[in-house]
C-alpha cells in the first residue's frame, strides 16, 4: 500500500519535471520570438533539455507499463512513440539555422505537450490522494506502527 503511494508521488515529481521542462522551453521560444534571446543561446538551452526529457518520458511510460497501469500507459505511449520517431529521424533537436522558420510549429508542439502533462498531473495528484486515503483508511485497522515507520523512512 505504501509502495503504491510512493509510486504515485514519484510519478508526481516526474510529471512535474516534464511539465516544467516544457514550460521552460516555451518561455525560451517566446523570448526568442520577442528578441530577448539570440537563436544560438536559445537553441543550445533547449537542445540541452530535449534528450533528457525524452528519456524521462520513456521512463514514465515504462513505469506505468511495469506497474500495470494500462490506462495511463496507453495515454503516455503515443507521445513516447512520437519522441522516439523524432529521435530516430534525428529531427528532435532544434536547428539553429532554421529556428525562426520552425518557431511557431515548435511552440505549438510544446504547448500541446504542456497541456498533456498538466492533464497527467491532475490524474497523478488524484491518484496520490486515493493512495493516501487508502493508506489512512486501512491504517485504522491496525498495523499503524509499521506503516507510519515506513512513512517516516
Amino acid at each position: 500500500m505504501g509502495l503504491n503511494l510512493i509510486f504515485w508521488i514519484l510519478c508526481f515529481f516526474v510529471d512535474l519535471a516534464l511539465l516544467s521542462s516544457n514550460f521552460y522551453q516555451l518561455v525560451i521560444l517566446s523570448d526568442l520570438e520577442a528578441d530577448y534571446l539570440n537563436p544560438y543561446e536559445s537553441t543550445s538551452r533547449i537542445n540541452f533539455l530535449i534528450v533528457p526529457e525524452f528519456i524521462l518520458h520513456g521512463v514514465f511510460c515504462a513505469l506505468f507499463l511495469f506497474t500495470w497501469h494500462w490506462f495511463l500507459f496507453l495515454v503516455t505511449l503515443p507521445l513516447a512513440i512520437y519522441s522516439a520517431k523524432l529521435f530516430k529521424e534525428k529531427k528532435h533537436l532544434i536547428d539553429v539555422t532554421e529556428v525562426f522558420r520552425a518557431l511557431s510549429a515548435e511552440k505549438k508542439i510544446r504547448l500541446v505537450k504542456l497541456g498533456f502533462y498538466l492533464f497527467l498531473l491532475f490524474v497523478v495528484i488524484f491518484r496520490v490522494f486515493t493512495a493516501g486515503m487508502i493508506l489512512f483508511y486501512s491504517s485504522k485497522f491496525g498495523e499503524l506502527d509499521i506503516r507510519s515507520s515506513f512513512l517516516q523512512f
Partner: peptide, 14 residues
C-alpha cells in the same frame, strides 16, 4: 513573415 535567400536570421526580422 518569411525570408528567402542566403543569410541567417538573427531574430525574427533581422
Amino acid at each position: 513573415t518569411s525570408y528567402h535567400g542566403s543569410f541567417m536570421l538573427r531574430s525574427t526580422d533581422l
